[in-house]
C-alpha cells in the first residue's frame, strides 16, 4: 500500500464528494439560471430522437447495475440463493447490453455534435471536456464488465467492499489497490466526472422533474413570491404580509427602449 494508493482511494473520494456537494450547492445558490439541459434539439432532431433516449435509458440501467453491484453485498445475494456464477452471468448480460446501448447512444450523440454545424456551434467549453471523459468512463466500465467473462476477479469482494467502506469513513484502500487496472481506471474517470458534475451541464441530472407526477396540471403563483406556490386559495395570498424582496425575476429583462413619445 503506497502513498499513491492512499491518496487515490483513501483521500480523493472524499475530496470529490466535497466538491460535488459544495459545488452543487454553490451552483444552485448562485446559478440556478444555469441549471438546464442546454438541449440542441432545435437544431437537429432526427439523430437526437434515436441517440438521446437510447443513451439516457441505457444509462438508467447502468446506474441500476452499479447500485446492485456496489451496494448489495455478496452475502445478501447468497442468502437469497443466487449463486455467484448466476449473478455474474446476468450482470454480464444485462450490464453489458446496457453498457453497449449507452455507448452506442453516446456515439450517435457525439457524431451529431461533431458533424452538425449548428450543434457543433452550440457546444460549450465544458462540453468539450465532459464528453470525452464521459465516453472514456463508459468505455472503461464496459471493458471491466467484459473482462468478467474471462477474468476470475470478483469485484463484489474488491471494488464494492472499498466503495461501501468509504461511507463507513474507514476506506479499505487495499481492496481497491488490488483491483485490476480497468476497474481502477473506471473509478478514477468516474470520480473526475463527479468532480466536474456541478460545473458542467451534467447538473441537469439533479433536476429530474419527479414532482410532475403528483402536481396539478395548471400552476398558479402569486406575483409576490411569498405564499404563492401551490393551488390558489382565495384570500390567502392577499393576506400574506408583504415583506422581504419582491418576486423573483420571472422573465428575461427587456432591453431598455427609449421612452415612448405618444402621438
Amino acid at each position: 500500500m503506497t502513498h499513491v494508493h492512499i491518496a487515490l482511494w483513501g483521500v480523493l473520494p472524499y475530496l470529490v464528494l466535497a466538491v460535488l456537494v459544495a459545488g452543487t450547492a454553490w451552483r444552485y445558490r448562485y446559478d440556478r439560471f444555469g441549471f438546464t439541459t442546454r438541449s440542441s434539439q432545435l437544431h437537429e432532431s432526427r439523430l437526437l430522437r434515436i441517440g438521446g433516449p437510447l443513451f439516457h435509458y441505457a444509462l438508467f440501467l447502468v446506474i441500476g447495475g452499479h447500485v446492485m453491484g456496489l451496494l448489495v453485498p455478496e452475502s445478501l445475494t447468497e442468502r437469497l440463493h443466487v449463486s455467484e456464477r448466476m449473478y455474474h452471468f446476468s450482470a454480464l448480460v444485462v450490464g453489458g447490453t446496457a453498457g453497449i446501448a449507452a455507448v452506442a447512444g453516446l456515439g450517435i450523440l457525439l457524431y451529431r455534435r461533431l458533424r452538425m454545424p449548428a450543434v457543433r456551434a452550440a457546444t460549450s467549453r465544458s462540453d468539450r471536456l465532459v464528453y470525452p471523459l464521459l465516453a472514456a468512463a463508459l468505455l472503461a466500465g464496459l471493458l471491466a464488465t467484459a473482462s468478467t467473462a474471462t477474468n476470475p476477479y470478483d469485484y463484489r469482494l474488491g471494488v464494492s467492499v472499498w466503495f461501501r467502506s468509504l461511507f463507513a469513513l474507514d476506506p479499505d484502500v487495499t481492496a481497491m489497490a488490488q483491483a485490476p487496472f480497468t476497474y481502477q481506471l473506471h473509478a478514477l474517470l468516474g470520480m473526475t466526472l463527479f468532480a466536474l458534475w456541478p460545473f458542467s451541464r451534467l447538473v441537469h441530472a439533479f433536476t429530474a422533474p419527479l414532482g410532475y407526477i403528483i402536481r396539478p396540471y395548471v400552476v398558479y403563483r402569486s406575483r409576490r413570491g411569498a405564499g404563492g406556490r401551490g393551488p390558489y386559495r382565495p384570500g390567502i395570498s392577499s393576506q400574506v404580509p408583504q415583506v422581504g424582496h419582491p418576486a423573483r425575476q420571472a422573465a428575461p429583462t427587456p432591453h431598455r427602449t427609449a421612452r415612448r413619445t405618444p402621438g
Partner: peptide, 12 residues
Amino acid sequence: VLVDQDRCRGWR
C-alpha cells in the same frame, strides 16, 4: 402566464 427562468430546465 410566465416562465420562471430559474426553474426552467429546458425540457421543451
